[in-house]
Amino acid sequence: MKYTILIAFSILSHCVFGQSNLNGAWDTGEDNTIIEITEIDGKTTGKIKSSDNSKAKIGNVILKEVNKNGRIWVGKIYAAKRQEWYDAEITQKGDVLEIKINVGFFSKTVEWKKT
């Protein structure tokens, strides 16, 4: 019984704590835009990998200053329409990123899906 509990705990802890980074390609759900998130030398950034939007510039940084803070990630996200950086809180739920964008007193949450 002791070993069964230990094995179950090991499996569950891997599921809960196994996602230590946001690396990968993420579909924003708009204009077939894919953001590639990578961690290089401890710095996590997201760049536009591909998009059907003719105004999107492939390779442009869209996420920066991303750091883990407990169970969430915090950083800056670029709003191309407003050409401004905003604070963002990112929560990973399996193959979905929930990104809460804070603009003054207002906030908006968007979802990106892993490709």
Results as ranks from 00 to 15, higher is better:
107 S>A: 13
114 K>M: 08
78 Y>W: 13
35 I>V: 15
38 T>G: 05
83 Q>L: 07
32 N>C: 04
90 I>A: 03
14 H>G: 12
13 S>N: 09
12 L>E: 01
85 W>H: 06
46 G>D: 09
50 S>Q: 11
37 I>N: 06
88 A>V: 04
106 F>C: 11
96 V>S: 15
13 S>P: 02
60 N>G: 05
110 V>N: 14
114 K>T: 03
5 I>D: 13
50 S>A: 10
25 A>R: 02
78 Y>S: 10
25 A>D: 07
3 Y>Q: 10
28 T>Q: 08
77 I>L: 05
58 I>T: 04
39 E>I: 02
5 I>V: 15
32 N>L: 03
103 V>C: 15
76 K>A: 02
27 D>T: 08
89 E>P: 06
59 G>V: 03
34 I>E: 10
34 I>Q: 08
37 I>E: 04
3 Y>L: 10
101 I>K: 09
20 S>Q: 12
45 T>P: 11
70 G>N: 10
18 G>D: 02
29 G>K: 06
36 E>C: 06
11 I>P: 07
91 T>Q: 12
30 E>I: 11
110 V>F: 07
65 E>W: 01
82 R>Q: 15
98 E>S: 14
53 N>I: 01
18 G>A: 09
33 T>I: 02
3 Y>N: 10
110 V>R: 12
41 D>G: 10
96 V>G: 12
84 E>P: 03
9 F>T: 13
4 T>D: 12
79 A>S: 08
105 F>G: 15
115 T>H: 07
68 K>N: 08
30 E>H: 12
50 S>M: 06
94 G>C: 09
109 T>S: 11
88 A>Y: 00
13 S>R: 05
56 A>P: 02
91 T>G: 11
39 E>K: 08
4 T>L: 14
106 F>M: 15
52 D>A: 15
14 H>D: 09
51 S>M: 07
90 I>W: 02
53 N>Q: 05
56 A>K: 07
51 S>W: 01
48 I>N: 01
50 S>I: 00
75 G>H: 00
33 T>F: 01
92 Q>F: 00
36 E>R: 08
43 K>V: 11
111 E>V: 09
24 G>W: 00
49 K>L: 13
106 F>Q: 14
84 E>T: 08
22 L>K: 02
98 E>N: 14
109 T>F: 02
16 V>N: 02
107 S>K: 14
41 D>C: 11
107 S>Y: 12
79 A>D: 13
56 A>S: 09
69 N>G: 02
76 K>L: 02
21 N>M: 11
